[in-house]
Design a protein around this nucleic acid. Structure first.
Length: 184
DNA sequence: AGGATGATATCC
DNA sequence: GATATCATCCTC
């Protein structure tokens, strides 16, 4: 069992943290059973100036977690059906986060994990985990070998066409050739 | 290409 | 208080 990432991992530049999250292990412990998957696809949301980020609407009840301290989970419901999970980055007050888009199944995973809502379903991640500390025992990200820079692809983010030029920024990162990436 | 389904932001 | 919109997924 590998070590949890510490607060300092998250309290950094969001693009750097996003790329470094590739290869790491998301772990959700339920009734003593550890569900886990290797992070293979992420998107960086940089802060209020990033028109694709939820924090661009300012600090609200919904986005409060994004503006909080790093290393916490920002989980929200989308389209009334699905949950998406983010990891808060940068120092407190910044308003940035990294969306986890796909996992490669590692342990005790049932169902697909090649999409932001699919991975939440596979790991039983829902509203109750919004604002949950990722330095906890039951929900955390564990260290694992990094994905080398030459194995990381950079693409525009998915589903943010409304964000003008921000939609074209290359802020989606995934491990090249990994078959669990949602949109290769 | 379109529908499901509910929280939320943004208007009155 | 109404309504438009949504960082998705599935079926057609």
């Amino acid at each position: 069992m590998s070590a949890r990432l510490e607060r300092s991992f998250y309290a950094r530049d969001t693009v750097v943290a996003a790329r470094d999250l590739l290869g790491k292990l998301l772990v959700r412990r339920i009734d003593g059973v550890a569900l886990s998957g290797r992070i293979v696809e992420v998107e960086a949301y940089l802060g209020p100036h990033d028109l694709a980020a939820h924090s661009s609407r300012g600090r609200t009840a919904r986005t409060a977690v994004m503006f909080g301290p790093p290393g916490y989970a920002y989980v929200y419901m989308i389209y009334g059906l699905h949950y998406c999970m983010n990891v808060v980055t940068e120092p407190e007050g910044h308003g940035a986060a990294v969306l986890l888009r796909a996992l490669e199944p590692a342990g005790n995973i049932a169902g697909r994990t090649n999409g932001p809502a699919l991975l939440c379903r596979a790991l039983s991640i829902d509203r109750r985990l919004n604002g949950h500390d990722l330095l906890s025992e039951d929900f955390y990200i564990a260290d694992a070998p990094p994905v080398p820079a030459n194995r990381i692809a950079s693409r525009p983010r998915i589903g943010v066409d409304y964000a003008g030029r921000w939609a074209r920024r290359l802020l989606r990162f995934y491990e090249k050739g990994n078959s669990f990436v949602s949109r290769p």
